[in-house]
Simulated scan of single mutants.
Amino acid sequence: MTLQNSTPARARITPAGLMFLALTSVGWGFNWPITKYLLSDLPPLTLRGSTGVFGAVLLALLAILSGQSLRVPAKLWPRLVVAATLNVGCWMVLMGLALLWLPASEAALIAYTMPVWASILAWPILGERPNLLRVISLAMAFAGLAAIMGGNGFAGSLEKLPGIIMALAGAFGFALGTVLAKKLPLHLPPLSAAAWQVGIGCTPVAIAGLVIEKADWATLSEFDWTLLIGATVVQFCVAYVSWFAALARLPASVAAIGTMAVPVIGVVTAALALHEPLGPGQIAALIFTLAGVALATRS
């Protein structure tokens, strides 16, 4: 990474950045219904924390095998801990808990208000003043999200309120982490950066799960284990690495807007796998959201 801290980030939009962003969106999109399904067998902190720790170990092994150093300079530890807390720890905990109150499709939709917060925060922190195309793309993407909410009969009932608050808090935290990653880059190799952030973010979550939850791993079926292992590898070894790589190659606001394909993928896969609603509203949202993402990549 060659970003500088003294001036606003001005990363250009590159084909490699868009490719990494697409990999991130697909990996995270599929993860929503899988996590919702697995929560019927494992409690949230145990599920999110244990998969994260396992994912961090895999990332560290990949880093070593690829010749990347895991050494972290002393001066980078504070910003590494902040990044891990916002981008991984808070996201894992809050989104895992939100799924206890919300369907996977609704949780994904609320979570991906993140681009709004990122675009707002990128202006004062990074000096990334939003241009007209970016504003239009953001409006189109959120028109798509509004269509999905309407199609699902989304209602902010009191029963769902804890999940809504947790999903919004997780979205804001991730947005702040996204913007700060551009302002205060870690200057670590991608695999090493991902391994440390996932490990630091998920280890306290796993410990909390061991202390306050009761997980019966023996009840998991072969299908459950297949989903658990597959989702762990895709989410951490593919999606997180791709996200950090995309963030290094794209403006923070463009990267954030691009991830709005994630809830569309989440809604569609949740409809197919969990039989959550998928009707004209969701189809219209697919068109609006992907059009917004496409426009964002040209801004």
Rank of each mutant, 00 (worst) to 15 (best):
L145H: 11
L86Q: 13
A155M: 05
E159Y: 09
L121W: 02
A175G: 15
P124W: 08
R134Y: 00
G153W: 02
Y112L: 09
G153F: 00
Y112G: 13
L132F: 12
L168Q: 10
A122Q: 13
K160M: 11
L100E: 11
I125E: 04
I125R: 00
W101G: 09
K160T: 06
P103S: 01
E106S: 13
L138I: 03
L132W: 08
A108L: 06
L102H: 09
G153L: 01
R134Q: 15
G156C: 10
P124K: 08
P124R: 03
G150L: 07
M149L: 14
L168I: 06
R129E: 12
A143K: 05
A108P: 08
A118H: 00
V88G: 06
N87R: 07
L138D: 00
L99F: 02
W101H: 13
L126R: 04
E106G: 04
C90N: 05
W123R: 09
M95L: 14
S119K: 01
A167H: 14
I136S: 13
G156I: 07
I120C: 06
G163I: 03
R129M: 05
G96N: 00
L99H: 01
I164C: 08
S157K: 07
W123E: 02
A147P: 01
L126W: 02
S119M: 14
L97S: 01
W117A: 15
A171F: 03
A155S: 13
I165M: 14
L86E: 13
G170S: 11
C90E: 06
G144Y: 01
L121M: 12
N87M: 13
F174E: 00
R134H: 10
A169N: 08
F154A: 11
A139R: 01
A107H: 02
A122H: 06
L161Q: 15
F172C: 14
L97N: 03
L126N: 03
R134I: 03
